[in-house]
Nucleic acid binder design. Structure first.
Lengths: 161, 161
DNA sequence: GCTAAATAGTTAAATCTTAAACTAATGATA
DNA sequence: TATCATTAGTTTAAGATTTAACTATTTAGC
């Protein structure tokens, strides 16, 4: 990237990788997510539907951790999905503090019809790398992401698994 | 990650790399940027100061491309930096549509004093990988980020360089 | 059983962000 | 020069996000 920073070899290398990592993620994500507008979903809304689709009903707390957003934000995201009849909240009878969020039939139909296109986009994005390169990238990302002493990812209490 | 998605080997691999890439970038960025609050700068504000520090005066258009934000957003970011006396706008006499943004002395002192700490954080983040691993990661990120047919990164007309 | 601490979720205020409409300036073309 | 298209930047409206304060509920210790 164009950064004309003068520092040690080590610094230059680290800064260069950092910016490439950030830009790659941003660029891939925005291409993959650019079609969400077609079904009137924000990235967060889609993330919630996707999580519920693959994992089944989840508490809002767990949704927040999954999509890397604050619990305050989840309240609004789920509100908006609920207004459109795509998900419903169910108060847990065991522990009444918990709200379980689950897909309605309408929500299930939407995500089931749409997810394959989404997955296809991701496959296409990643296809510039062959299988072994993809695995290398995944492994390296996992290591820098996990980082010893990693803090809350800026939000809530996310801990990449 | 916990995604219980059932698909082809290829799909599973691509989705897995995708989520690892997004999460790594998010997690590293939020740790590196978490200290910006100490000097009362947002991520975008810091990005502008850093770009001006390393590249010299830039037009707002170029700043937008550099920090991956819309030109509308740059107007506000530069407004806020200008209010604090960290940057100044200079109308280009050749082409009066352009506004050149440059660091004031105060802005230069701030970024000069602060940047080394920032760079240190990045070096520390990346130090879980050795030099050759860092270079591998950088090269792989560059390839997926550039992607053939890459569109606007969601904003304006950014094209990772 | 009470009380204190912890947890899940909501609300409100502040900020950031974008998209789209708009203004101003430039360039191209006749 | 008159007109049309393009470009840089600003403004506005709508929405997303976070933090912190708040409510409701549960758990643990006494």
């Amino acid at each position: 990237m164009g950064t004309k920073f003068k520092g040690s070899k080590e610094e230059i290398r680290a800064l260069d990788v950092f910016i490439k990592l950030i830009r790659a993620a941003d660029s891939v994500a925005s291409r993959v997510e650019s079609h969400l507008g077609n079904i009137e979903l924000t990235v967060s809304q889609f993330g919630v539907l996707e999580a519920l689709f693959h994992l089944g009903p989840l508490y809002q707390k767990d949704l927040a951790r999954k999509i890397l957003k604050s619990t305050g934000n989840i309240t609004m995201v789920v509100d908006n999905l609920e207004k459109r009849g795509l998900v419903e909240r169910i108060r847990d009878t065991e522990d009444r503090r918990h709200l379980s969020v689950r897909l309605t039939d309408k929500g299930t139909r939407l995500i089931r019809a749409f997810f394959p296109k989404h997955a296809g986009r991701i496959v296409r994005e990643m296809s510039v790398l062959n299988a072994s390169e993809q695995e290398q990238l995944g492994a390296l990302c996992k290591r820098v992401g996990l980082q010893i002493g990693a803090r809350a990812s800026g939000r809530t209490t996310d801990r990449p698994s």
